[in-house]
Design a protein around this nucleic acid. Structure first.
Lengths: 212, 212
DNA sequence: CAGGATTTCCTACACGTGTAGGGTAACCTC
DNA sequence: GAGGTTACCCTACACGTGTAGGAAATCCTG
């Protein structure tokens, strides 16, 4: 039996890397085709060309696989979140552009993200994403206030401190994203960015003011 | 076999009311004791003194039961959300008080809400709650701008229009609530209200400004 | 109270889940 | 390459899910 909880990516063994990749790819394919709640472990394993018991050697359930399989994509998304502008830059072109990139990325994998964030999705994954966004927002705010460049926060554990503004902001972004995806992306990413930026910017300003 | 999708509360038949109540009460009990994901339909049915197949006569799964069983409680929560103040009322005592009531209600059923909103919770229910909060926020904003008293929005269907600020705000509140509950409510409801109100208020102001 | 209509319960079935043990083959290290 | 290690696969089992049909009890209606 395999040792469970292998601490992720640069797994020494070639076999492990292959099954991890195969399972992740299979899940992403399947989730584009149907609701996450309809996907059985047997489905994923078969699509990946792997036995069902091998799946259990690596993950406890589909949500756990989804968490690790999508972390890279999620982090890409989060990376395109705009930092708070220096101060009241009303048009704020670069921030809006960042947000547009955010919504564009969402739209490009709309099927995937809708399945994960929507009502048939995974509360676990949503929680995971909220933590990561909150951590990013936390860094943005403190970086903007102190002026320091934080040391990149590598693959560090997302031990968010209890930062109310950060989780507030993170929840808000998830809410907008989930709702937009669920309605089938009726507005363009640019429109969404234009509508969202004033709200996000307002939160940033409150945070900066409260922090000092 | 029973006709599925009976349109809820004032169900004529005495038997139906009894089983609905028994199932709802049983679920709420169980969810205070353990994670939602560990609760089987057989558990709920047994606790309610009802057969498993009767459960399926009324609900498709545990999440659907949770949705209807908690709607009343949820609506109570939403009712205590503060409306936007007339304009910049910085201390805004009544708004903060409303928010404190909101967090106090959450804390009173902390076990329940944590199980429902947390990582082991129900994405369906979270989606449902977000829609309801968004609808309430939507009404608040338009009421504040137009000055009208909307006609109470009785048990009406939560057909939220695509209102970005509303879902943004709704997501934010859910994010704060979920995070706070998950950490075991480390701060008092009053502290949470004090921390949250500036953020919420800022969003209200942006919305009012954008609307005119 | 009789009537019909519904709800409730029982049984049964095909599947999915999660766990366990052990055989085989692939891998890394030396 | 030979070594031990470890991942992979197979089998099997206990349980939960969701569906279906039909018997019996309960209810609303007139």
């Amino acid at each position: 039996m395999a040792t469970i909880r292998d601490s992720t990516p640069p797994s020494g063994d070639r076999r492990v890397r292959r099954t991890h990749a195969a399972l992740a790819s299979a899940l992403i394919q399947l989730v584009e085709e149907q609701d996450l709640s309809r996907i059985s472990i047997a489905d994923v394993a078969e699509r990946a060309g792997v036995s069902r018991s091998t799946f259990y050697d690596h993950y406890r359930d589909v949500h756990e696989l989804a968490e690790t399989a999508c972390t890279a994509m999620i982090d890409g998304l989060i990376g395109s979140l705009p930092a708070p502008g220096p101060d009241s830059a009303d048009p704020a072109p670069e921030a809006t552009q960042s947000l547009e990139a955010f919504f564009t990325s969402l739209a490009q994998h709309a099927g995937l993200y809708r399945a994960l964030l929507g009502p048939q999705g995974s509360a676990r994954l949503v929680d995971h994403i909220r933590r990561r966004i909150a951590a990013a927002v936390h860094d943005h705010i403190h970086q903007a206030v102190s002026g320091d460049d934080l040391p990149e926060r590598a693959g560090s554990p997302p031990d968010t401190p209890h930062d109310v503004p950060a989780v507030f902001t993170a929840g808000a972004l998830i809410g907008v994203a989930a709702d937009w995806l669920q309605r089938g992306c009726p507005r363009s990413p640019a429109e969404m960015a234009t509508l969202t930026w004033p709200l996000l910017s307002a939160l940033y300003h409150v945070d900066a003011g409260t922090l000092t």
